[in-house]
Design a protein around this nucleic acid. Structure first.
Lengths: 332, 332
DNA sequence: CTGAAAGCGCTTACAG
DNA sequence: CTGAAAGCGCTTACAG
């Protein structure tokens, strides 16, 4: 069955397609008689007309589509962000294309390519290491872009992020007050700037104090195994130790290690994790964690993008939100 | 900056747009000379040409877009499914539109409307209660549709699901062998057929045995609170009890209740949960659970949809996959 | 108040 | 081997 077009409406209603278009778009400027309007609306209804946005997009050069590129939509953090972005985008009349790039610059480039072929009006992206080329290409083609969660070292793009350095500094400070013998930072062996900030904040503060600090850095592909292995090698229960897991995945891997090895929190070791996830609430001790303001990040990212798309703001800004330290009983 | 079109390539290369189109699409039928081909490809490269899929879609009446409607993309179960669907869809050249409808039939209808305006080639949906009208509309308009996870009582649609009835029967059977005084089924107060199946399988098997069974059914909006409240009212620790949580959200809510109230598993109570989630692994006891074959569900759903889109198969089938019971130590 | 016409960027049957 | 032309479903400046 061929789907009805405005041509069909025009034919049945005995008017021109132009008139149909005017009525359907409720343009104020050109007044169409009440009678014709009613007629057209009736016909549209009766033949079950659905506008073809693709034709409209082609004519108008805007698609009302926005693309979202994350590392992995099945990761709690990103699926929560995606959900908020979806709601926000919907409010502004956008539909969301979603793609996961697995920290892989080729996949990232492929997705930007795909989205750009689909004529998205703009993209919200969490850029990966070595994605500069793909991003620069988008910039040359004047695509509105907003970064989320992450940012790029060498390209100044509007985006949203949290105060990674400061929150880590704050966590470290909190731990220092409790006089631990040793602090362990668990993070990724990565070049992603926002994660380096997260690490630096902790490191710098610890250095100043002179407290012994160890770093456990894992690759992104075998997080669980690597965290377990390195905790086995590095965790010395004879010392009073606190661990800072700098992401939800790391936190979950670490907590699981503690469970599996019957290490009690905070009796044997203290800890703080990053991001809020349901999993933390099933751990036998109430896990202290860093909460990111997901809705705010999402809302602002869509707003920044929409501003660019409509050129309300020529140059977007980089907006930093404050993460919140939720203190529960895993530190003692 | 206006983006380059095949017209630009044609002008610069000194050929017609038809020729450009042929070369860019590598059509075998019409042979274009090596020289012209090379020239066109070079020009395309040099002006950074990106095909406008929207124009192509309009002409070809297919968009290579597919829509996915789930209850909530931030729910672990759906975000994992979405991820697999994304990968699978990508392989076949489709880009994914994602929407969450929050079990709300109006939002569901809105999303189908939106997706249909965007001219998706088909949709994969987890239909909600009272979504029959929206679905019927899509059917009348001959949209390829595949249901996932759920199915509709009154509309026979191709789709993928698991053996809800049988797996619950199997869990119940497993529990009956351990001679519990009481079995508690924790589920939703809902009309969703797949969830009723899940409940029936358990009920029917329990009835036959004569073992006392209680039902805890919650609404979908305050799961945690309701589960906690009802467990408080119904869980009698003086009896040897086993609880079956029939979804990941219910399981997490229930496990948290047990943690908060210091109820030991399996010493004080036994349990089985549904779906696999990272959270189960942080619970102090190894949680036995039902694992759904997510990748298979996703893969088959995309395959069924692609078949419909390309009319490889006129009528799709409903495919049922077997869920797997992962026995760990939470039942004794 | 309404319509004829051009054009958005493509594809493809047809002609040469 | 290559091109002119029609057309996908819309919008909108212009004319009447």
């Amino acid at each position: 069955m061929k789907r009805a077009s405005i041509k069909d409406i025009a034919r049945i209603a005995g008017v021109s397609v132009a008139t149909v278009s005017y009525v359907l778009n409720k343009k104020e400027g050109s007044r169409i008689s009440e009678a014709t309007q009613k007629k057209i609306l009736e016909v549209a209804q009766s033949i079950n007309y659905t506008p073809n946005k693709i034709a409209k997009s082609l004519k108008m050069s805007k698609s009302k589509l926005i693309g979202l590129i994350v590392a992995d939509i099945s990761n709690d953090f990103y699926s929560n962000i995606a959900r908020s972005i979806e709601d926000e985008a919907m409010k502004l009349g956008y539909t969301l294309l979603i793609g996961s790039c697995d920290e892989n610059p080729e996949k990232f480039a492929k997705l930007t390519e795909l989205f750009s072929e689909q004529q998205v009006d703009g993209m919200i992206v969490a850029p990966v290491v070595d994605s500069d080329d793909a991003i620069n290409k988008l910039i040359r083609e004047e695509y509105p872009i907003v970064t989320i969660d992450r940012y790029l070292k060498n390209i100044d793009l509007p985006g949203v992020m949290i105060n990674n350095f400061e929150i880590s500094e704050q966590i470290c400070n909190h731990l220092l007050l409790k006089n631990f013998d040793e602090l362990i930072y668990v993070g990724y062996d990565t070049e992603l700037p926002h994660l380096l900030d997260r690490q630096d904040g902790f490191d710098k503060r610890a250095e100043k104090s002179g407290t012994s600090i160890k770093r456990i850095l894992t690759g992104i592909h075998h997080i669980t195994e690597e965290v377990h292995q390195q905790l086995r090698d590095n965790l010395d229960l004879s010392k009073k130790t606190a661990i800072y897991f700098s992401s939800n995945k790391l936190g979950i891997a670490g907590l699981r290690y503690l469970i599996d090895n019957n290490i009690k929190v905070p009796e044997n070791v203290s800890l703080v994790a990053f991001d809020e996830t349901e999993a933390y609430y099933l751990f036998p001790t109430e896990v202290s964690f860093v909460r990111q303001p997901l809705e705010e990040l999402a809302r602002e990212s869509v707003k920044l993008l929409d501003n660019q798309i409509n050129s309300y703001a020529k140059e977007g800004r980089r907006v930093t939100f404050k993460a919140e330290f939720i203190e529960r009983s895993s530190v003692e």
